[in-house]
Computed example of a mutant assay.
Amino acid sequence: MCASASGTHRMAYWEWGDPDNDQVVMCVHGLTRTGRDFDHLAQPLAARYRVIAPDVVGRGRSDWLVDPAAYAIPQYVADMLVLLARLRPARLDWVGTSMGGLIALGLHGAQAMSALLRPARPGPALDAPMELPLGRVVLNDVGPALNLSGLQRISDYVGQAVIFDTFAQAVDYVRSVSAPFGDHSLADWQDISRHVFVEHDGKWQRHYDLRLSQAFARQADVDLDAAQALLWGAYESLPESVLILRGEHSDLLSVQAAHEMLRRNPHAQLVEVANVGHAPMLRSADQIDHIDHFLAG
C-alpha cells in the first residue's frame, strides 16, 4: 500500500529466491513494461539474492493513480521506499531498465539531498539509519543524459489506445513498435507481449494506464538542464560499481553519453549489446551473464 497526494494505491511485485534473504536485488522495468520482464534474469540471481521486480504503479497488476500528473519519478521513488521498508534489506543492489534506472538515480539523489539538507534537531531521535545506500547498480540503456529523438519515438506510441481481436494481433503490434528489442523467436515475442496486453471483454488491450502519456508529455516540457544536473549529481555519487548496458543501435542512450558516464564515474564499466536498440530485454544468455558476473563481483 502506497500513497500519493490523491490517496492510496497498491503496488504489486514479483519475487524469487529465499524470502528470508536480506541480500536484495531490485529489478525495475521500463516505461510501459512490467516486472515480469525479469523472469529470465531472476533465475540465476535467485541463488544469491531475494529478487524483487515491482510493477510500477499504473502498469501490470498495480493500481492506477487517481491523478495522472503523479506518474513521474518522485512518485515512483516514494513507492519504492515503501516497498523497501517492507523488505528491510541489509544490502540493496539494483537492475534498472530505462525508467527503472532513472528511479534508481532518483532514489539515490533523494537520499543524498535529504542527508545534506536535513536540519539538526535537539533531543532524542530515531536510532536506526534512515538511508539505505545503493550497492551495485546496472543501468540498462539509460543515463543522466537522454536523446530527445528517442524520447519522441516512445512518446509517439505510449498513449495509443490500440485494441485487438486476438492475442496474435497484439503480438504483431508489440513486435512492430518494439523492433529495437532485437531479434527474438515468435515464442519470445509472445512472452514479451503476454504481460503488457490483457484480455478484457473478448478484446486485447494494453495492460497499463494510457494516461501515462499525459505525464510523459508534460515532463518533456520541464527544465531538462536542471533535471539532467540532478541526475548527473546522483550518478556521479553512486557509492559502488556501475554497469552500463547500451544497445548498439540505441536511440535513447547515445555513444557520447555512455562515454561521458564512464568519464564522470570511475567505478563505471560499459558493455555494448550488439544488434539491439533500446533496450536490451535481458533474456539472452550473454546479456544475463554480464549482469550475473557484475553483481557477483
Rank of each mutant, 00 (worst) to 15 (best):
D188P: 02
P144G: 14
D127E: 13
G150Q: 06
R48Y: 05
F294M: 09
Q219T: 03
L117I: 04
S176N: 04
A104K: 13
L224Y: 08
A12R: 13
A104I: 02
D172I: 02
V51L: 14
P19K: 07
G7M: 09
S254I: 02
N147F: 10
A226D: 12
C27S: 04
Q287C: 02
R91P: 12
A12G: 06
Q160W: 08
Q214F: 09
L83Q: 07
G17A: 13
P122D: 14
N21L: 10
M1N: 05
L212D: 06
A296E: 02
P89L: 10
A46W: 15
R246Y: 03
G123A: 08
D251N: 11
S193V: 03
R91W: 11
L295H: 10
D63M: 05
A215Y: 14
D79W: 05
M26C: 10
P19N: 02
L105F: 09
Q228N: 06
Q287A: 01
W232V: 11
T97M: 00
A170E: 00
A120M: 11
G247F: 04
V138W: 06
D286N: 00
L270V: 08
L230Y: 06
G182L: 00
P133T: 10
H108N: 14
Y208Q: 08
P133M: 05
L212P: 14
L148W: 01
G123L: 05
G277L: 05
D292R: 03
Q228I: 12
V25C: 05
T32V: 12
G143R: 03
D141N: 01
P266Y: 07
R194P: 10
Q43W: 14
A220Y: 10
L134K: 07
N140D: 00
D286R: 01
Y173V: 03
Q269A: 14
V222E: 04
G135W: 06
D188G: 07
C2D: 08
R175S: 09
V82S: 04
V158M: 01
E260K: 13
A104P: 13
Q23V: 01
L151F: 09
G233M: 00
Q214P: 06
A72F: 00
L253I: 09
L84F: 00
D172A: 08
W16P: 12
R33V: 08
H278T: 10
R136W: 05
R153M: 06
W16R: 11
V66C: 12
P74Q: 01
D286E: 03
W204R: 01
D127R: 15
L65D: 09
Q23N: 14
T8A: 09
S176K: 15
